[in-house]
Amino acid sequence: MASTNDPFQFQEFEEAGNLLEANRDATTISIEDEAIQTENQRKSGGLTAGGDDDEDPLAYDDKSELLSGQKKSVPFWTFEYYQQFFDIETHHVKERIIGSVLPWPGKNFIQVYLRRNPDLYGPFWICTTLVFAIAISGNISNFLVHLGKPHYKYTPEFGKVTIAATAIFSYAWLVPLALWGFLLWRNNKIMNLVSYSFMEIVCVYGYSLSIYIPAVVLWILPYQWLRWTSIVVALCLSGSVLMMTFWPAVRDDHPKVIIAVMSAIVVFNALLAVGCKAYFFSNPQPDLPPNSTAIEVQPSS
């Protein structure tokens, strides 16, 4: 009996699919239909919206389905829930890093690279790499500046790793959280066509930090002009990636809100870069022996 049931079910599905294909405008409430609608919404909201949307919608849907993989809704305490954020391959990570380093006008990072498949691999390891890169290159630059000075005694300054980790991880999590909350609130007030999920925002922020890794390594060389140039270059690149990504999300909003959001994004980015440079590459005074400084400083002050 059970074997005769199967063909019936299969035909039923096929029939529904045919119906959906035949009259696309009919208001059938199904998950696939919703997915197509949101996809069209995203596509029309993005800057890359082209004519191919109308020409071959099914092909696009197929492609996006294949790329995004199967999205099962699993509860957040299971291992599989987190596995979906690591469903990524080497060439995806390469493309995303390159996409975050080289902003191209009209290329929205979330819509071009993430395609509804935000990952946590890139943000996490980019942040970790940046933490150690800042701590280590700050230490090396300190050593190079004081090289040859008689009273300088080299120390690894390992405590800087903790401070760098706190600064960078809080930037990469708290700013997206605030931005996500703000966009959610604005979305309730004004219907925006584009809305980003929290993971997508975290992903963009994580990848936008990748340009700072080579910049921080450049800061080893003790030339102030080089450091400021690399800060400005990195700031322009990562700032423009962030701006272009969040532009569609706030485009329909009030001009004041647009300016506020965009300037907040850039200011926080600049704050992180300049703060890191000021704190980790400040080259403090060479360590004099503690006894002599205490004797010399106290009478004068």
Partner: peptide, 30 residues
């Protein structure tokens, strides 16, 4: 020095938490 090298506990934390995080990472990647 207070800004010196890694303390005993820091080495321990880096080695164990580091390997746990790497392991989780490889498990999450499948």
């Amino acid at each position: 020095d207070d800004q010196g090298g890694p303390q005993f506990a820091e080495v321990f934390v880096i080695v164990w938490f580091g390997s746990i995080i790497i392991t989780l990472n490889s498990k999450l990647l499948g």
